[in-house]
Amino acid sequence: MAETKRVERPLSPFMIGPYYRPQMTSISSIMVRITGIATLGTVALLVCWLVAAAASPAAFDCVNWLLTSFVGDILLTLAAWAVWYHVLGRLRHLIWDLGYGVDIGFNEKMGKAMFIGATVLTLITVLVV
């Protein structure tokens, strides 16, 4: 009986580079996790703002200055993008759970739509608020 030759290949998709080409589905899945963590950080920052408001006027002025400064505007804009991206990612998973859109071509389009949709929704949020 002839011996089969084992193919030498990496065992993990985390070997990005010559062994693994990132795909839109994996990038969008990783981004959903990252935006979930970023949203947690945003909630912590807003809780600090509320605690500072309850603590003293000086503490509130300090935290409020940070949130209303240029840096705060950038942070809150990025936080809005993270929240919208995460919401769209959860919506994508709901669609998958219902049994729709599980083919690769549709998933790649949905991944691109999540990036574009989060950006458009963030711009709308910034312009309205």
Score class of each variant (00 low, 15 high):
Met1Gly: 15
Glu3Ser: 13
Glu3Cys: 05
Thr4Leu: 14
Lys5Leu: 13
Arg6Leu: 13
Arg6Tyr: 11
Val7Arg: 06
Glu8Lys: 14
Leu11Glu: 10
Pro13Cys: 08
Phe14Cys: 03
Pro18Cys: 00
Pro18Phe: 12
Tyr19Gln: 06
Met24Thr: 08
Thr25Phe: 02
Thr25Trp: 07
Ser26Tyr: 09
Ile27Asn: 08
Ser29Cys: 02
Met31Asn: 04
Ala38Arg: 00
Thr39Val: 14
Gly41Met: 13
Ala44Glu: 06
Leu45Gln: 04
Ala54Arg: 04
Pro57Asn: 05
Asp61Pro: 01
Cys62Ser: 11
Asp73Cys: 08
Ile74Tyr: 07
Leu76Arg: 09
Leu76Glu: 05
Trp84Gly: 01
Tyr85Asp: 01
His86Ala: 13
Arg90Gln: 08
Arg90Met: 14
Leu91Lys: 08
Ile95Glu: 01
Trp96Ala: 11
Trp96Val: 12
Asp97Cys: 14
Asp103His: 11
Ile104Tyr: 07
Lys109Gln: 12
Lys109His: 12
Met110Glu: 03
Lys112Trp: 15
Ala113Asn: 01
Ala113Gln: 03
Phe115Gly: 00
Ile116Leu: 13
Ile116His: 00
Gly117Asn: 04
Val120Cys: 03
Leu121Phe: 05
Leu121Thr: 05
Thr122Arg: 01
Thr122Glu: 00
Leu123Phe: 12
Thr125Met: 12
Val126His: 04
Val126Thr: 12
Val126Ser: 02
Leu127Phe: 13
Val128Cys: 03
